[in-house]
Amino acid sequence: MIDRDTVLHVATLSRLELRDDEIEPMARELSAVLDHLETIGELDLEGVEPTAHVLAERSPLRADEPSPSLPREVALDQAPDASDDGFRVPSPQA
């Protein structure tokens, strides 16, 4: 069961603001979904290797050769708040 504190903790980890009226519904929905997914708890999976990926031993490495970078104005073009030379954010110290 997902309680209010767990929801708030997970929201913090996820950097999601939840308004007061959004917390209880989220707790309820997550609990319901997790309840439903609990069926995998019934399986005996002792000694079964996890599969993170169905593709194994196939991904190639890249040669250390430069490819063109973006012109700075293109790199900054989509930024919500850009200065002349960078991406502006509220100061972490503030």
Binding site: V89, P90, Q93
Partner: peptide
């Protein structure tokens, strides 16, 4: 940064 409230900002260089 000169934004409202005179809050300070940082700039990221990637």
């Amino acid at each position: 940064s000169g934004r409202i409230g005179g809050s300070t900002s940082s700039v990221v260089d990637y």
